[in-house]
Amino acid sequence: MSGGKIFRKIFLVDLFQGLAVTFRNQNPKYIVTEQYPAERPKVAERYRGAPRLNNNPDNGETLCIACNLCALACPENLIVVGSERNEQTRRKELTTFTYDLSRCMFCGLCEDACPVDALELTQDFELASYSRPGMIWDRQMLEEGPRPKQYKC
């Protein structure tokens, strides 16, 4: 064994090298913990979270044209689009829209398929529910979005 090795062994050099790293990281500058319920993290703009059905901001009518493309694109078949034909305008109109969040994997294929950007995955990520039926969102819920409780501490 060479002299350097014996020195390292007796004076525990390897141990102190490691400890130096640990203590360097004690610096409060390096704190990365997020205080989650108190401070909500800002998620990225493209985040794929809770779905939303967009309304036209001018007249409040839904943008969805009930084309059913999102339901066809979804691998999990969890979107059900209900529509009926308006006799006056001879166009299909959206009546119901159900979205089963409990089976959704937030892959974004439905969003990509929508031709009019009516369906969108938004930045809301607090989707927990106390019951299974609570995970099935209807049209009203999709248009209004979830209202998670804000906690203060």
Partner: peptide, 15 residues
């Protein structure tokens, strides 16, 4: 993972 999130909107199962 933050780069993934900003790029495609998901962190783990990115698609």
């Amino acid at each position: 993972l933050n780069i993934f999130e900003k790029y495609c909107g998901a962190r783990l199962t990115t698609h």
